[in-house]
């Protein structure tokens, strides 16, 4: 099955059936860089011979990562989907289907910081409107799906990201920033603009999703054993 490479008979549409004009610049080529290549080997080793197409989603993430490294914008141009299809010997359309199905794959360029703001009910009740407003103000955009003029931010409205305990929250690239309000959002974005990477997680005095203001139970001295009888372990990562 070698004939899947696209015959370049693109764009002979009759009037009214013309291809949609692309609203953004598609690069003309894409090749995996050394770092991605190393990663591809690791990913494809997980699948039995002949089932490499299963690796399509990890590879699309890989493309996004490489695009972020190379251009500062984590998105998947069409030529990259073709490259993935070639690598996995699957028809390009099957890659297009996957890439367009999942919202986690950006098929349009995004800003250096992709701000995915949750506006589902718990976050909304806890003030996601303020977060949105702050993002729009700092980024200088008027609506979702828009990229800021300086290319720093793209705002995307997303449904629940599963961090309701720390609502309202948003995801900046791969990291969750939680317990936001208007001010902390503004500070966060300003810091990002300056090129800093503020610590992820809750933006208030709170340990992960532990109660705000410290423990409310198990107030005794932390001994050698915790309440469940196991050696006490304080996770030091999120």
């Amino acid at each position: 099955m070698s004939g899947h490479a696209s015959a370049e008979n693109i764009g002979h549409g009759s009037p009214g059936h013309a291809p949609a004009p692309s609203t953004h610049e598609q690069p003309s080529s894409f090749t995996f860089d050394a770092q991605s290549e190393a990663e591809i080997g690791r990913i494809l080793a997980k699948y039995p011979e002949g089932r490499q197409a299963s690796g399509v989603m990890p590879l699309l993430y890989l493309v996004q990562d490489q695009m972020r490294r190379q251009t500062g914008s984590a998105w998947i141009p069409r030529v990259a989907m073709d490259a993935v299809a070639r690598r996995l010997t699957m028809p390009p359309i099957r890659v297009y289907e996957v890439a367009t199905f999942y919202l986690m794959f950006n098929i349009r360029p995004v800003g250096r910081y992709h701000l995915q703001i949750c506006t589902t009910t718990p976050c909304w009740l806890r003030g996601s409107d303020e977060v949105v407003a702050a993002c729009k103000a700092v980024a200088g955009v008027s609506k979702f799906e828009e990229m800021s003029p300086d290319g720093m931010f793209t705002l995307t409205e997303v449904e629940c990201l599963g961090a309701c305990v720390n609502a309202p929250m948003m995801q900046v690239n791969d990291d969750y920033y939680e317990d936001l309000d208007g001010d902390s959002t503004r500070r966060l974005l300003e810091a990002l603009k300056r090129g800093e990477t503020p610590p992820r997680g809750p933006q208030i005095d709170r340990y992960n999703s532990a109660p705000v203001g410290g423990r409310t139970t198990l107030l005794g001295e932390v001994g050698e054993r915790s309440a469940d009888g196991q050696p006490d372990r304080h996770p030091d990562t999120v």
């Binding site: 370049e8 291809p19 367009t100």
Partner: peptide, 15 residues
Amino acid sequence: TSRGENMEITTYVEK
């Protein structure tokens, strides 16, 4: 391509 309300039958590359 795409999904839900936005699902479309297409070659995606208009060829």
